[in-house]
Nucleic acid binder design. Structure first.
Lengths: 202, 202
DNA sequence: TGATATGTAGACTAACAGGTCTAGACCTAG
DNA sequence: CTAGGTCTAGACCTGTTAGTCTACATATCA
C-alpha cells in the first residue's frame, strides 16, 4: 500500500464537495481527510498547508471560468463575455457555486503560497487585459471610468444576477440572461454593433 | 468602580471597528475585550454570546439601511430606492462596509439568538413587502419573475455597483449612480414614469 | 536479497477559540 | 454601618485547529 492509496486530485475533490456543501471556512484539514478516510500525514505529504489546498482549488476553478470569458473577449464579443457567466454556471454548477458564491479571500486570507502566487497574478492580469480591451471597444477609451463601466457590465452585473440562484444551488434561468442583456445594451450599446448578432436575438 | 466602566454600546463600537478593519471572522470575544481593555466577564455580563454581539451589530446596520430604502418605496419612488444604496453608503461609509461587504451569514452562521430572531424576521419581511410593492408598480404583477426583476434592479445591481468602492473604503463616485440609473431605466422603465422626475435628469 | 524511494498511519503539540466560574470592588438603600 | 445588587476581574475549562514527528508498510532497483 505504499504506492499511492490517495492522490492530489482526491483531496481536491473532497475539498470541493465540502466547499459546496458548507463553504470554504468549514473546509479543515481534518474534515477533508475524514471524508477521504485518509490520514493527516498523507495530506501533508501532498500539500504544504491548508492554504495550498484551498488556493489550488480556487485557482483551478478561476482558470476554468476564465477560458470561455477570454475567448469571447478575444472575439470582441462583449455580450458573449457578459453572458458567459450564466452559461458557464449552467454547465458547471458545482464550480460556479465554489467560485462565484465566495470571494478569493474566503479561500486564502493572507499571503498566498509562493507556488500559486504566479498563477493568481497571471489570472488577475488576464482579467484586467480583457477589461481594457473591452473598454476600448465599447467606450473608445481605457480611463478609470471606462474600466469601471467595463467591470460593471462584464463581471459585476452577471455575477449579481446569477448569485441568488447559485445560493439555492439551481441553474440560472433564462430570465438571468435577459437581465444581463438589457443591462449590457443600456450601458455599452456600441460594443454590440459589429458582432455577436446571433446572441442579440432575444 | 462597580457602576459601569463599560456599556453595551462600547462593545458594539469596538466590534464594529474590528469588522471594518478585518472582517467579521476576525471579531473574537478576546479581540473585542482586548481593544476595550475590558475583562471577559464584563463582556459576558452584557452579551449572551459572541453571536448575540455580532447579530445585534448586523441588525443595527440593517435596520438603519432599511429606513431610507423603505421611505423611497413607500413614496413609490423606485429609482430613489435603487439610488438609496450609494447615497446611504456615502453618508455612512463605515456602516455600509459592515453591511454591504459581508453577508448576514458572516455575522451569525447558524441559528440566531432568540432575542434577535424576531428582528431579523421582520427585517426580511419588510424587504419582501417592499419588493412586492415595487414589482406591482413597475411590472404590474408579483409573480416570481417580476419579484426577481425587482430584487435585481433595487438591490443586486446597486450592491454590485457599490461594492468595489467599499472594498477600497472609499465613497461611491457619481458614476455609480449613473450605472444604477441606466440599469433601472432599461429594466423597469414604467416605474419611473409618474414620479421622481428630478432624479432622472442625467 | 536488501537498500532506498515513496508514501501511509496517527499520536502529539501549541495556539487559540468560546464560554464558565468564583472572588471581590463599588454604589445604593435601609 | 451594613446588606445586597451590580458589575469588574481574570483564571480556568473544553474543544478545535493547523501543523509536526516518528514509525512503519510496500514497491522498485541494485
Amino acid at each position: 500500500m505504499a504506492r499511492s492509496a490517495f492522490d492530489n486530485a482526491q483531496f481536491l475533490a473532497a475539498a470541493r464537495q465540502l466547499v459546496i456543501e458548507r463553504g470554504p471556512a468549514m473546509v479543515t484539514v481534518d474534515s477533508v481527510t475524514q471524508r477521504l478516510k485518509a490520514p493527516k500525514g498523507s495530506f501533508y505529504y501532498r500539500f504544504a498547508s491548508r492554504d495550498a489546498l484551498l488556493g489550488e482549488l480556487w485557482l483551478q476553478s478561476a482558470v476554468a471560468y476564465q477560458e470561455g470569458f477570454m475567448a469571447a473577449i478575444d472575439a470582441d464579443d462583449g455580450l458573449g463575455a457578459a453572458l458567459h457567466t450564466p452559461a458557464w454556471a449552467r454547465e458547471h454548477l458545482d464550480d460556479a457555486c465554489l467560485l462565484l458564491l465566495y470571494s478569493r479571500e474566503d479561500f486564502v486570507a493572507g499571503d498566498w503560497p509562493s507556488a500559486l502566487r504566479k498563477g493568481v497574478r497571471e489570472q488577475a492580469e488576464r482579467v484586467k487585459d480583457a477589461l481594457t480591451r473591452f473598454a476600448r471597444l465599447a467606450f473608445g477609451a481605457t480611463g478609470s471610468g471606462q474600466m469601471r463601466r467595463a467591470a460593471f457590465v462584464l463581471l459585476e452585473v452577471p455575477l449579481a444576477a446569477v448569485k441568488p440562484h447559485l445560493k439555492r444551488r439551481e441553474a440560472p434561468p433564462p430570465l438571468v440572461d435577459e437581465l444581463i442583456r438589457s443591462t449590457f445594451q443600456a450601458i455599452a450599446p456600441r460594443a454590440d454593433a459589429g458582432r455577436a448578432r446571433k446572441s442579440t436575438v432575444a
